[in-house]
């Protein structure tokens, strides 16, 4: 009997496909998310919009918060560790969380190295803005990738930019003559063996979700039509006027992403979405997507 294999790690992500993973900060919110049809929840102390507003150093959530959320839902529970903070990750692993997000939403703990994720029994998801970043995370042992987008903004433009970038670079990689692949890998800071794997399959070898700015059912369907495998919604649900209703609508839009009649129906009367942020108004050194190396 084997535990913690890469197949088990990537396999759980496969089971989450076509689903919505929602940020929650309390057991009540976790229940609302599960009731709305979330395929997993991300247990946090504060959603990204509040982290952004609060400033200062953002760290792993209090284990009590994570445990209380694990106790009330039957769906998988994820939690965030700081980039490079392998001790936070070990703590979350010992709590029994089902997935760890090594996340740029929290303040990085290491300005050069990410966590060596191969060494853990629990699987990891990591953010990426381009193919090189995704492949570096895979080489470190990530079992799932998500776009970074720009968290806590309710503005989908960065998530769109990132998925388009990843796909465009995959297309380029696949079209290159064999002898140019090593130079491509070098230019993108990508390990050659993982680059060759992507070139062979024509896609990332793991599930790729959208994250960072999704606030409406139409945003979710947009990311799915652009080729994402599923959706993370951070602040978009519990910073909106009617979280339960919006959560359910985003779940429906993620399943029926190609059916405009359904999208029109579920987009009606949702109340106010979360207030949005224009990306150009955020100073470059305050953009969470710049974190990670």
């Amino acid at each position: 009997m084997e535990h913690g294999t890469i197949r088990l790690k990537t396999g759980l992500a496969e089971m989450l496909k076509g689903g919505v993973i929602m940020d929650v900060t309390t057991p009540e919110q976790a229940r609302i998310a599960q009731e709305a049809g979330a395929c997993a929840v991300m247990a946090l102390e504060r959603v990204p919009a509040d982290i952004r507003a609060a400033g200062g150093v953002a760290r792993m959530a209090d284990p009590t918060v994570v445990k209380r959320i694990m106790d009330v839902v039957s769906i998988p529970v994820m939690a965030k560790a700081r980039i490079g903070h392998f001790v936070e990750a070990r703590i979350l692993e010992s709590l029994g969380v089902d997935y760890i997000d090594e996340s740029e939403v929290l303040t990085p703990a290491d300005d050069r190295f990410h966590i060596d994720k191969r060494d853990f029994r629990v699987p990891f998801v990591c953010g990426a803005r381009n193919l090189g970043e995704a492949l570096r995370r895979l080489a470190e042992g990530a079992a799932m990738i998500r776009t970074k987008g720009e968290p806590g903004t309710g503005n989908v433009v960065e998530a769109v930019r990132h998925i388009r970038m990843v796909q465009s670079e995959i297309r380029t990689l696949c079209s290159l003559p064999e002898d140019e692949v090593p130079a491509f890998a070098k230019d993108h800071g990508a390990p050659l063996d993982v680059a060759l794997q992507v070139r062979h399959a024509g896609r990332l070898p793991v599930v790729n979700f959208a994250a960072g700015g999704i606030a409406t059912p139409a945003d979710a369907a947009l990311m799915m039509q652009l080729g994402c495998d599923g959706i993370f919604v951070g602040s978009g649900i519990f910073k909106s006027a009617d979280p339960a209703r919006r959560a359910k609508a985003i779940v429906a839009a993620t399943t029926h992403f190609n059916d405009c009649t359904v999208l029109a129906e579920v987009s009606r009367d949702l109340g106010e979405a979360m207030p949005g942020l224009e990306i150009s108004r955020i100073a470059r050194d305050e953009r969470m997507q710049e974190r990670g190396w």
Binding site: M1, E2, H3, G4, T5, R7, L8, G11, L12, S74, P76, E93, G96, V97, D98, Y99, R121, V122, P123
Partner: peptide
């Protein structure tokens, strides 16, 4: 019984 073997860390191949 759902999640009968436990959480993800208890997932296994056999």
């Amino acid at each position: 019984r759902r999640n009968a073997f436990g959480r993800q860390r208890d997932s296994f191949e056999a």
